Simulated assay, not measured.
Amino acid sequence: MASVVVVHGIAQQYLGGRTLHTAVAPALLDGLDLAGGPPLTEKDVDVAFYGHWFRPPGATTKSADRSWTHRDVAEGFETDLLMALWAEAARSHPGRVPAPDPGESHKAVTPRTVQRALYALSKLLPPRFTDRFLVGVLKQVRLYLTDDGVRERVQECVARCVTDDTRVVVGHSLGSVVAYEALAANPAWNVRTLVTLGSPLGLPRLVFDRLRPGPVDGRGSWPGTVRSWTNVCDRGDVVALAERLGPLFGDPPGDGRRTVTDVLVDNGWNAHDIVRHLTAVQTGSAVAEGLRP
């Protein structure tokens, strides 16, 4: 049974568990080797695949994500999330990302504003990524956080992969939210370590405040019986703009030992990529810590 379970992130709906495993497992082992971690094989790594729940049905309509444009960003959660990402990107990358005009607000978003927001965020993405990718991010995050049926089915995918032998869970992108909630809902699991990569967990109101269990007095609950939690982030990651999770989760400062260790990495031009996150020595070190006796 797998010692490490990886929960993938957004935009994997056209792949599968075995397909992802061919890239994810070697990348994780490379990071582990760089960190001087214990020897593992690819059989020790499993992928909790849930992307199929986000694959659109066969259709010739605009529901197919290959056709998504700025006009497909739905009012409400999706526009709110888009504007929040834009504001945070402009704050954390001044000069690189154009800021919203003072009069622009998520309460009165127009198609023109949506276009400007997508264009601004594209400054943090590789050239090959288009509006379709960002619109897909918005829609998949919304579906998971607002549709109880989708949330339950995704959680079941993780529960099927975690066994008594699993010591480390790695969650990437939206998968970090999935992994966090799965661990919080299953305190009997033997998982020791959580590693989050490119995580949107800290995004206020739209993600952080919708978690299950919800935060209390501004702090998120600790995920199950996890002993250590490392959050790995690239400063240029458009999804993980709330870089530090330490101030949001675990024991208040001075009150205990359950704290998140926030670590920055440089993933080059593809800041959000799961493979680049996994091959980083910082990720390997966090995984190794959870595997040692």
Rank of each mutant, 00 (worst) to 15 (best):
L118W: 02
R212F: 05
G254M: 11
G254V: 06
A242D: 00
E88Y: 02
P215Q: 10
W68V: 05
A64D: 13
T146S: 10
V73W: 05
V287N: 00
R205F: 08
R292M: 14
A108I: 06
K62A: 14
V150D: 08
L174P: 09
R66K: 13
A286E: 00
Y144W: 14
Y14C: 03
L28W: 00
A84P: 05
V114H: 02
V287S: 00
R142C: 09
E156V: 10
L278T: 08
S122W: 13
L278K: 00
T110Q: 10
V150S: 03
S3E: 11
T61N: 09
P56S: 05
D266Q: 04
L241K: 08
P94R: 05
T41R: 15
D234G: 06
S122D: 15
F133D: 00
H8N: 11
P187I: 09
V287E: 01
D251S: 15
E181R: 07
A84S: 12
L194A: 08
L15I: 03
L197S: 06
H172T: 11
D147V: 06
A84H: 05
F54H: 09
W53D: 10
V178F: 05
L138N: 09
V226E: 01
L121S: 05
F208P: 00
G51I: 12
G76K: 12
D237G: 07
V226K: 11
V195R: 02
T61M: 10
L85G: 03
R227K: 07
V265C: 06
F49Q: 06
H172Y: 09
S285W: 02
S173T: 09
H93D: 07
V137D: 11
A117G: 12
V45C: 03
V238I: 14
V177W: 01
Q115G: 14
A280Y: 08
S92L: 12
R112L: 13
H272G: 15
K43S: 15
P204R: 13
G214N: 04
T261E: 10
R219K: 12
S285F: 00
A99Y: 15
F208S: 02
T193L: 05
A280M: 04
I10A: 15
D255L: 15
V239S: 01
A240S: 04
V178N: 00
T196C: 00
S92Y: 04
H272C: 01
P204G: 04
